[in-house]
Design a protein around this nucleic acid. Sequence first.
DNA 1: TTTACTGCAAATATTTTGCAATATC
DNA 2: GATATTGCAAAATATTTGCAGTAAA
Lengths: 160, 160
Amino acid sequence: MKQNEQTKNAVKQIFTEYLKNHALRKTPERFAILDMIYSIEGHFDIDQLYQHMINAKYPVSRATLYNNISLLIDAKLLIKHHINNNIAQYERSYNSGMHNHMICSVCGKVKEFSDQNILRAIKTKKMTNFTPSHYTLYIYGICSKCAHKEEEKKKEEKKK
Amino acid sequence: MKQNEQTKNAVKQIFTEYLKNHALRKTPERFAILDMIYSIEGHFDIDQLYQHMINAKYPVSRATLYNNISLLIDAKLLIKHHINNNIAQYERSYNSGMHNHMICSVCGKVKEFSDQNILRAIKTKKMTNFTPSHYTLYIYGICSKCAHKEEEKKKEEKKK
DNA sequence: TTTACTGCAAATATTTTGCAATATC
DNA sequence: GATATTGCAAAATATTTGCAGTAAA
């Protein structure tokens, strides 16, 4: 996938620049983590990232993951979500455009999408004393699978 | 405030109905918690709610708060946010319309607003295999106060 | 009278922190 | 060579769970 390699190079450059500007060190762990994050499609949590790093023969400690993830968020290369429960989910943000999420309140499944109308409406909004940089939209509802199941349940209850 | 009393009565009715439909008991704690939540403007966390209940001479345990908050969320009377850190913030949702949030990435301050254009754009979006019920929009950026501070900091660094 | 609910305390789980060893600059 | 970063283990902290006593139905 050529597209993905290009993206990886771009974010690597951005991160290098970021580290330089903040007088931080260019450790191999940092770039390995960034590379892995931009190899993952969709959402992931720390534990999944940790496992991925092990599988890729590049084990890093959880402390290092947490440490560097906050840098990547600050560098606008990563977005943090708190959709369900207490466990944070992450998602790469460079060049994604996937700021909108449909979340099923029953099964918790998340589907991302991009939408020009929504983007335009948000960009048009005048905000005083505030300079926006990015946004995340969560639309909660029920997916057709869960809706179907709930209906079946109701039918069964009627039988009784 | 007459408006607020009306809202409180309305949500009380909705909650009563919800409890009946789910064969749950109408405990005084439940209605005291609901009443308190609809007395609070804007966001709050569990600890703040806990303190409010104590101040109002109606102490309830944290376990009870967590238990009933999940009922209220299910009854669509309360919304849960996970904006910063690991601590959940809550916000009453009945009759609010405040689904949009501006969040300062530096100081973490949150400002809510409603917007017809954004609402329309979201409602217009066609979603297959998904029935939406509500949404939350987070716009991240930097507030003018923090922007000002950051600029001062830069100036000082230049002096050195 | 039955059993769901409350409150307390212990358990759970994610994230943060302190510190010695290591590697970047 | 100075010190930021890593990894480990311990600590901190929000939320959940188990259980005995209480109260709603």
